[in-house]
Design a protein around this nucleic acid. Structure first.
Length: 263
DNA sequence: ATGGCGAATGCAATTCGA
């Protein structure tokens, strides 16, 4: 079983690249982020033509997540409010960033973690609050009886310095701050989840996002911010986890590439 | 410190991403 995550930066602009990728990489489930389209305008037919069922939760212009699966998903829900009491969610479901569904006994949680902008921005504390609630969301999911869980998506956090191209990491830079890393550890890793990529690859220099500007990809100035976290049973089961950098070389690419785990 | 690039909106220029 293969599960992939990919921030496509607009599903409509990237439709040909995504459908072509699915033809050559027929993963069981593809989780996408930053679809940037309302549900009514989502290009469902083109994805279904590739042999996938489509589940999406989008909004105008920004954010948006979707899951494409070879078989129908069960236990599908949207937003933190699909699992948590509305009162605890507050404003953290205003942006469409969470979708989950079960494929063949694996509960897959697809996330688009807020970017955070700059540390001085209002968006930064929003990101931290969002990650705090993610911990509650995952705890509740575990307590509901789910044993096998895959939490994946665009986390907008490089967990370690070796996940960033720069030798000297700017700890004050968003996506690498101590506060972001601590809360990611507390909300995900401390619950028992492990980063599937690090089961197979321990060295640095592997990235999933490169800035469009200043020839970031050509100079390999990247960050590894797209992750697949697994509960212990799935982590033991995993046979590979790889980053496919090929789509970044195409004309008009997303700035992120797919990451695939095989269970 | 600033701007670079790309997408959406909507038709020029601004917001947002990371």
């Amino acid at each position: 079983m293969q599960i992939a995550t990919w921030n496509v930066n607009s599903i409509r602009t990237r439709l040909d690249i995504v459908t072509n990728w699915l033809q050559t990489h027929p993963v069981d489930v593809l989780c996408v982020q930053e679809t940037k389209v309302v549900d009514e305008q989502f290009p469902i037919a083109a994805i279904e033509a590739c042999g996938y069922h489509v589940y999406r939760s989008g909004q105008k212009s920004y954010n948006g997540v979707a899951m494409f699966s070879k078989q129908p998903l069960t236990n599908v829900s949207y937003g933190f409010g699909g699992v948590l009491a509305p009162a605890s969610v507050s404003d953290l479901d205003d942006q469409k960033r969470v979708i989950t569904g079960n494929f063949d006994g694996v509960q897959i949680v697809n996330l688009y973690v807020p970017n955070g902008n700059m540390v001085t921005s209002d968006k930064y504390p929003y990101k931290l609050r969002w990650l705090e609630l993610l911990g509650e969301y995952l705890k509740t999911t575990i307590e509901s009886g789910q044993r096998s869980i895959c939490v994946c998506g665009d986390f907008n956090i490089a967990l370690e310095d070796l996940d960033i191209h720069t030798k000297t990491t700017a700890k004050d830079r968003v996506m690498a701050t101590v506060a972001e890393r601590e809360i990611l550890r507390k909300s995900v890793i401390d619950l028992g989840f492990q980063d599937s990529f690090r089961k197979f690859t321990t060295e640095g220099g592997h990235f999933s996002w490169w800035d469009y500007r200043q020839q970031g990809f050509e100079r390999n100035r990247g960050w590894r911010i797209d992750h697949l976290y697994l509960t212990p049973d799935l982590f033991d089961r995993a046979t590979s986890c790889s980053i496919d950098i090929e789509p970044r070389k195409l004309v008009q690419p997303s700035d992120h590439v797919p990451v695939i785990v095989e269970l």
